[in-house]
């Protein structure tokens, strides 16, 4: 059966975006291949690594487990939308200063997840951060410096 594409109107990183997608294409696939936002990464394609995490209508989701067509009318934020014209977001700065990335492939997902946590809970405990980030796998760091970076960003954002 030939693939019929569906027209989707959505908002990505604050900008209105329209795209055509086959229903079988995941939001991750659409972001990367159609909209050309390649910051969200594919690590497993089954919702177990979190490298594709995006914020959709105020909740973090694995974009590999969302169909692109489900983005109709949604408000999506990806890693590309975290920094502003004023520069890097405190969470990005904290990741750099705390050496919280090594290879960097998981970093976009961690940043999107961490930012959502800090917006909801400005002063999370170490345990809470570890719980919140359990859906994001990192194989390089052992998480120590990531957790410290999130705590540092929380402190910075509170000041």
């Amino acid at each position: 059966m030939p693939a019929t594409k569906v027209h989707v109107t959505t908002t990505i990183n604050g900008e209105p975006v329209e795209f055509l997608a086959e229903p079988r294409q995941s939001l991750l696939e659409v972001l990367r291949d159609v909209v050309q936002l390649t910051g969200s990464k594919e690590g497993c394609n089954d919702g177990n690594c979190g490298a594709c995490t995006v914020n959709m209508d105020g909740r973090i989701v694995d974009s590999c487990l969302v169909l692109g067509v489900e983005a109709e009318g949604a408000d999506i934020q990806t890693v590309e939308g975290i920094a502003s014209a004023d520069g890097l977001h405190p969470i990005q700065q904290a990741f750099l200063e705390n050496a919280a990335l090594q290879c960097g492939i998981c970093t976009p997902g961690f940043l999107v997840s961490s930012k959502a946590l800090l917006e909801k809970e400005p002063n999370p405990s170490e345990e809470r951060i570890r719980m919140w980030l359990a859906g994001n796998l990192c194989r390089c760091t052992g998480y120590d410096k990531i957790v410290k970076a999130v705590m540092a960003a929380a402190k910075e954002m509170a000041s």
Binding site: Q36, L37, G39, K41, L88, L101, G104, T107
Partner: peptide, 23 residues
């Protein structure tokens, strides 16, 4: 010393080009 890595900004903004990102 512990300076920030030179590829840091690219890696926290999603700009760094990994192999699968190539078009």
């Amino acid at each position: 010393t512990r300076p920030v890595r030179p590829d840091g900004a690219d890696k926290v903004t999603g700009r760094a080009q990994y192999g699968a990102d190539l078009q």
